[in-house]
Amino acid sequence: MMERSAVPGKERVLYVYRGDDYQGEEVAYRVPVVPGMVVLDALHFIQAHEAPDLAVRWNCKAAHCGSCSGEINGEPRLFCKTRLDAYGSLDIHVHPLRTFPIIRDLVSDVSWNYERAEELVPGFRPAEPPPFHLQQWEVDRVEEFHRCIECFLCQDVCHVLREHGLFGQYWGPQLMVRIAELEMHPMDTASRTDLLHSAAGVGLCNVTHCCTDVCPEGIEITHDAIIPLKERVADQHYDPIAAWLRRLRRPQPTSP
């Protein structure tokens, strides 16, 4: 393959956040433009030529690992999936995720999300041991959720966390996707509606759709995960007729 080279004389300025959670500022860097260049390429150029100590997290450079999340011009995006030429003549401001504590420069500490994932009980409780024998159409629904790359862009934009800081009350859209994946699995037998109603706090989401708008995997977070989960919580906690019907059904013996 031919090496792509810089367009002669064409440069772009990137305003990159340098600092930590307590103080920091934007620093301007000049980068020669290469056709098809993404923001992560530009950051690598800066690391190689101007600021070897610039902290940025990345692994795959192919929108698969979810490491290179940040905010470009205030919008949560993957650095490796955002092309410079998409910005035309606009300035480009590169910041870390700001809903989570900034460790340094473009790296935020997202461990809060993994801690919540550990608290997700009950976990997967299949009716029979895998492998499962199911038709593809039956598993399509949960496969949408498998696409999640844990980039946490949705967590970053969710106003419940970002603006209201209710980390103790709501787990955020990414964990709703994770819960939906278990809860709607055709073979799963456990119920997580109580968890959703209490600690995971799905009631704090006001379905404003911002998470879905930023998801780089195109997961319909609100339509396919959060709203169906809210409906399941409504079944259990807000619907007296459904509760009555459940009570009618309960006395009948169930097959072992």
């Binding site: 600092g19 011009n73 910005y87 910041h95 700001r98």
Partner: peptide, 16 residues
């Protein structure tokens, strides 16, 4: 989160 770290304006976006 510290308010000193406000991101730049979200209006300059290629996606909208």
């Amino acid at each position: 989160m510290p308010s000193s770290v406000r991101a730049a304006s979200a209006t300059a976006s290629p996606t909208r």
